[in-house]
Amino acid sequence: MAKYKLGDICEIVSGSTPKTEIEEYWNGDIKWITPAELDDESYIVYDTTRKITELAVKKTGLSSFPEGTVILSSRAPIGKVAIAGCEMYCNQGFKNLICSEKIYNRYLFWFLKGNTEYLNSFGRGATFKEISKKIVSDIEINVPEMNLQKKAVLNLERLSKIISLRKSEIDKLDALIRARFFELFGDLVEGDKIKENRRKIGDIASVTKLAGFEFTKYIKYKDIGSIGDVIMLRGLNCKRGKIILDDIKWIERETSDLLPRSKLYIGDILITYAGTIGDVALVDEDNKYHLAPNVGKITIIDKLSYDPVFLVHLLMYSNKYIMSFVSKVAQASINMQKIRNFEYYFPGFEKQKYFSTFVEQVNKSKVEVQKALDKAQLLFDSLMQKYFG
C-alpha cells in the first residue's frame, strides 16, 4: 500500500472574509462557509448560513473550491470536517483539500474525521491554536487502490448510519421520559399543575461538596486504578442524569475513607456547580465513587417522601431556573447555599414513584439500544484502525 503526504495528492486551499462593514458584500446568493457551521454530524454540505455577493468575490479576490472538496477547519476549532456538496467559498478558518485522482474524497473525509486529536496536536498559536497549510500538507496517509478505498468508505458509511440510528433511538427515549414528566407534573418551578408542597432542596436533602483544602491535602489522582480503588466523579462524568465513565480518575480507598462527607452512595444526586453548571447524575452503586471538585452532592433525607429518580429529572429539566442562581464572576458558579435554596412544588410520593417506575421501564429499552450502539461503535472503531492505523 502506498503512503503519500496530503500535499502530494491534494491541492490545499483556504479563503478569507470580505469586510463585514461593507453591506454590498453580504446577503447575496453565493455560498460562504465558516467552521462554526460544521458539527460532528456534518458530511455532505450543500448550503451555508451566510451568503456573499458577486461584488465581494470580485473586490476581495476570493477563490471558490469545487463540489467534492474535503473541507477541514484549521482553527476555532481544529479538525471539523465535511465535503462540499457544491461549489462554495470559505473564510480563513479552513485548509480545504481538492483531491487528485489518487484519493477518493470520502476516504480522505473518514481519515481526517478519525484523526481529530492528532490534528489538534499540531495546533500552534498564542491566542488560539491553528494548523498551517504546511502542517496539513505534510500529514501522511495510506492510500490503497481506488476500489479498496471505496469499499472501506462503503463499510464505514453503513456503520455510521447504524450508529446514528441507535443514537437517535436513545434520544427519542429520552424525549419520551421528558414528555411524560411534563405531562404528569407540568412546570414545578411555577406550579402550573401542582400548587402545593412548595419546598426548598435544603428542606428535603443535605447538600455538600468536597472542600478545597480537602482536595489539596488528601487527593492524589491515579490514571489507572487498582483493586479496591475508588473513582472520583468529576463534572465531565455527569451527563443527562447518568454517570459517564469515559474519562476517569481514581484514588485509593483509604483516602476516600478519610473523607466520609464526600463519599457517594446509591441515591445520591450529583450536580455540577462550577464551569459547566447544572449537569446532574444519579449514583447507582455503593462504595465505588467519591465526590470530586466542582460537583455537589444532594442526599435526600426522607426517601419515603422524596424519590431520587424523580428529583434528578426535576433538576435536569429545570436548567434555566438553576442558571438564574449563577454568580457572575470570572468563573460562573453556584455555591451550596444557593443549591439549598432551589425551590419547587413537589407532587405526592406515589406520583413520584409512578414516574420513577416509568423511567425504569424506558431505561430497560435504552439498555438494549445502548448495547447495539456499543457493538456498532466497536466495529466501526476497529475498521477505522484497520483502514487508517
Rank of each mutant, 00 (worst) to 15 (best):
W110T: 07
I300T: 04
H313Y: 10
L176A: 04
N287L: 04
I44Q: 12
G123F: 08
K364W: 08
M336G: 01
I194L: 04
E196S: 08
I227R: 11
L378M: 09
I162A: 13
T272E: 07
N155Q: 15
T272D: 12
E130K: 00
F310I: 00
S168E: 09
L311T: 00
N147S: 14
T20K: 13
H313W: 14
N197M: 07
I103A: 08
V45S: 09
A84S: 09
R178L: 03
T216D: 14
A292N: 15
K3M: 10
K263L: 14
I44T: 11
R124L: 05
G267Y: 11
L270C: 02
S137M: 01
I219Q: 08
E101N: 10
V369R: 03
V309D: 06
G15Y: 03
D374L: 02
S168T: 04
I44K: 15
F346E: 03
T127D: 07
I170M: 06
V309F: 11
Y104T: 10
F342K: 06
S206K: 14
V70N: 02
K161W: 07
W250Y: 15
R180G: 07
I339G: 00
K366I: 05
R75D: 05
N155F: 06
I71N: 01
Y321K: 13
E23M: 03
L62T: 03
L38C: 02
V13F: 00
Y265K: 15
E24Y: 08
I194D: 04
F355R: 00
T216P: 08
V189M: 07
I322R: 03
A292Y: 10
G85W: 11
R261N: 14
L270V: 06
N237K: 13
P66Y: 01
D171E: 14
R75C: 03
S333W: 05
L245G: 01
S382Y: 08
I201V: 11
V280R: 08
W110R: 01
T69D: 03
M384I: 12
D223V: 02
A376I: 02
Y218P: 04
Q352K: 06
V143A: 10
Q337W: 06
D257W: 11
L311M: 07
A179S: 15
G186T: 00
K193P: 06
A2P: 15
K193R: 05
F122N: 05
I12S: 04
D229N: 00
W250G: 03
R158T: 11
E343D: 13
A36V: 12
I204T: 03
C86K: 15
K133V: 02
W26V: 11
G348H: 14
S132T: 01
I251L: 05
L383C: 10
F215V: 12
K364C: 05
I244P: 12
L62D: 04
K80N: 10
Y306P: 00
K364S: 09
K3Q: 14
P66V: 05
E117Q: 08
D307V: 01
Y104D: 13
F213S: 15
R199K: 14
D284R: 13
G225Y: 07
T48M: 01
P347S: 05
E117L: 05
I44E: 11
S318G: 00
L379F: 02
P144S: 04
N27S: 15
I163A: 04
T116K: 15
H313S: 08
Y107M: 01
F122D: 07
T49Q: 08
F182C: 01
A84H: 01
D257R: 15
Y387A: 15
R106H: 09
L314T: 01
S324R: 06
F65D: 02
